[in-house]
């Protein structure tokens, strides 16, 4: 039996936890995978994934589709993603509102788009095309940014809202990214949060970050900090009990430590949403 869609609080399935994840008896509501790590791949990772999907709902969070990019959508990648979605019984696909590939070169990073009407129309059309190929809803994540791209005609909140409306898709609300961007661009994170289309939020991400000089870096390599927990509370108050994920991808600690973070998120969700 495959569990249903994600609900409650989950964590990312990471290689460092392959030995411990299937042994845990602690509360854990769902898992998220990076599907590119499983396309066409077998071996131990695939076996662990197959065992996990019997126990937990699996969320599928892509990183390589370059939905905002100028190059044609990679149909082979889309078909590989569809196969992974089918393999784990996922009902939705999440990706980033960004570009990662241009001029035939993949930069392997999540690069921000200019906040322009032309970019809205461009990415919305590609999201619709990707959704048709995948055969399931898509949720887009607000990405962390370190610079505002030239030519901006609107705020990030207005841009995200416009894209999601034009593509008629959901929001993966990355609360840490809201905080990081507010720090990096000198804005108020609560105002920035309120400017996002929270009524479309279908997932939430929480993570830690680091600092290099005056820049906050979304590195997923530390515990969630208190101001981000406060922002998460505000997000729950506005959007309700949206399935939430703890991301910890760098300096990955033992599973128990990540589950501690998940426990805290779950307690907060219950306190706010009942």
């Amino acid at each position: 039996m495959t569990p249903g869609p994600p609900a409650g609080v989950g964590i990312g399935l990471r290689r460092e936890h392959f030995d411990s994840i299937l042994q845990t008896e602690r509360p854990l509501d769902w898992l998220e995978i990076v599907p590119e790590n499983f396309i066409g791949h077998g071996g131990r990772a695939g076996a662990v994934l197959d065992a996990c999907r019997e126990r937990w709902p699996i969320g599928v969070h892509g990183v390589a589709l370059s939905l905002g990019g100028p190059d044609p959508l990679d149909l082979d990648l889309l078909d590989g993603l569809a196969a992974v979605l089918d393999r784990v019984g996922a009902t939705a696909f999440t990706e980033h509102l960004c570009f990662a590939r241009a001029g035939g070169e993949n930069f392997y990073d999540l690069l921000p788009l200019p906040f322009t009407r032309a970019a809205v129309d461009h990415v919305a059309a590609r999201v619709r095309a990707a959704r048709e190929r995948l055969g399931c809803p898509i949720l887009l994540e607000n990405v962390s940014t370190y610079a505002v791209m030239p030519g901006a005609e609107m705020s990030e909140g207005a841009f995200v809202t416009a894209v999601l409306e034009a593509a008629d898709c959901g929001l993966l609300l990355d609360v840490n990214n809201v905080f990081v961007n507010a720090h990096n661009h000198g804005t108020d994170p609560l105002d920035d949060l309120a400017a996002l289309p929270l009524e479309r939020a279908g997932r939430i991400h929480l993570a830690g970050h680091t600092y290099v000089d005056d820049l906050a870096i979304d590195n997923h390599g530390a515990p969630v900090i208190e101001p981000v927990w406060a922002l998460y509370r505000a997000a729950l108050e506005a959007a309700g009990p949206v399935p939430t994920l703890i991301e910890w991808d760098l300096h990955v600690p033992p599973l128990e430590r990540v589950l501690d973070e998940a426990d805290r998120a779950r307690a907060l969700m219950r306190a706010v949403c009942g």
């Binding site: 392997y108 990073d109 370190y146 610079a147 505002v148 030519g151 901006a152 661009h185």
Partner: peptide, 19 residues
Amino acid sequence: RLGPSPSAPGRFTFYRGLI
């Protein structure tokens, strides 16, 4: 080429460093 940004040039160079 692209016009001004409210962000300092070093912020753009940071992206090159990330890659």
